[in-house]
Design a protein around this nucleic acid. Structure first.
Length: 327
DNA sequence: AAGGATGGCAACCGCTTTGAG
DNA sequence: ACTCAAAGCGGTTGCCATCCT
């Protein structure tokens, strides 16, 4: 037997709120508060609405001092920084922006900010990196040989990985790291998000997450991005998956460029990210761990970078990967 | 001018977390 | 310690306005 519904779905109005409904809700809450019970509130004021709907309407629209639209450059930067640090935890991000709701920020990110960043990165790509000229990028990474890529962007040395991070990750059929504990996981989520604007598609079309994970090519290239920021892990991945380094490496060059641009334009220093990833892998013997709560208290100061968080808390790679279910 | 495509955003859905009993 | 209802939250949907062809 399932949980009892919070309201009688058949007798509940859905869709946009009328000014009269807004007025009823506003007047009541301003006078009496919610009484700590949203479920019973609509009945008290004669609204044919679900309690959850009333709560949402109040929090996102009727509540005093709510700002809509007109995001400032400072707000943009803060949202980007926080998103890169903590992922899509909109309520936490919203808490850093007075007058903004999580829903508003989420919509703003999905409809504008993400595109703004990706637009910028494409413009700047050629100038900042110059690895693959713009026209050449259109050819797609599969048209480059490993030798060409190596000559343009040499691989760092590849010691044996202490933990086969990417191998475990590669066996997942859906994202294993949406949980809130892992900063590493969050970084990967950002990579996926950026990467799912599939640069290898003919028309640069957006692909959905299920496609991302069901496509061996796309998935392994995404994984290679992680490996390229954690060079020690790369060789293990090649060895165990039995796929040629050519394939991974070509994709990695392009994607890393894109990633750097996103981070750069979001006022996050990409080198810090790379150092962070290096640190995660080099810390694999440390037994000290830190909780997300520990990290978040630092992240929420908004001026501190992911890298600095890891520096201060000395997170263990073992611990992080165990937490996100990779061990 | 028409109608299809796209973008923006409010609202909904359903899963997770919280906390009272 | 456990249960369960309410609240919180993030992802998704659907409507409407605007843009484009």
């Amino acid at each position: 037997m399932g949980r009892a519904p919070c309201c009688d779905k058949a007798n509940v109005k859905k869709g946009p709120w009328s000014p009269e409904e807004d007025a009823k809700l506003r007047v009541y809450i301003e006078k009496h508060g919610t009484g700590g019970n949203w479920i019973s509130l609509p009945q008290k004021i004669g609204l044919k609405r679900c309690g959850k709907s009333c709560r949402l309407r109040w929090l996102n629209y009727l509540r005093p001092n709510i700002k809509h639209g007109g995001f400032t450059e400072e707000e943009d930067n803060l949202i980007c920084s926080l998103y890169i640090s903590i992922g899509s935890r909109w309520s936490i991000i919203a808490a850093q922006l007075p007058g903004r709701t999580d829903n508003d920020i989420k919509n703003y990110w999905n409809t504008r900010l993400k595109k703004k960043l990706l637009g910028k990165q494409r413009k700047d790509q050629q100038a900042r990196r110059g690895i693959f000229p713009k026209q050449e990028m259109k050819k797609g990474y599969e048209n480059y040989s490993a030798n060409e890529c190596f000559s343009l962007y040499p691989l760092p040395p590849q010691p044996v990985a202490a933990q086969p991070f990417s191998v475990a990750y590669g066996t997942q059929t859906s994202s294993p790291i949406k949980g809130q504990e892992s900063l590493t996981g969050n970084l990967i989520v950002q990579f996926e998000d950026i990467f799912s604007y599939d640069h290898q598609q003919p028309n640069n079309t957006r692909i959905n997450t299920s496609t991302l994970y069901s496509s061996d090519t796309t998935f392994s290239t995404c994984t290679s991005l992680i490996n390229s920021t954690c060079p020690p892990l790369m060789s293990d991945y090649y060895a165990i998956n039995g796929v040629s380094a050519d394939h991974y490496f070509q994709g990695t060059n392009n994607i890393l460029g894109e990633l750097d641009e996103v981070l750069f334009n979001g006022n996050i220093n990409p080198q810090q990210l790379h150092r962070t990833m290096d640190m995660i892998s080099s810390n694999s013997t440390s037994q000290e761990s830190c909780s997300w709560g520990d990290i978040s208290s630092l992240v929420y100061s908004s001026s501190i970078s992911s890298y600095e968080v890891f520096q201060q808390k000395n997170c263990s790679f073992d611990d992080q990967s165990r937490r996100i279910g990779l061990q």
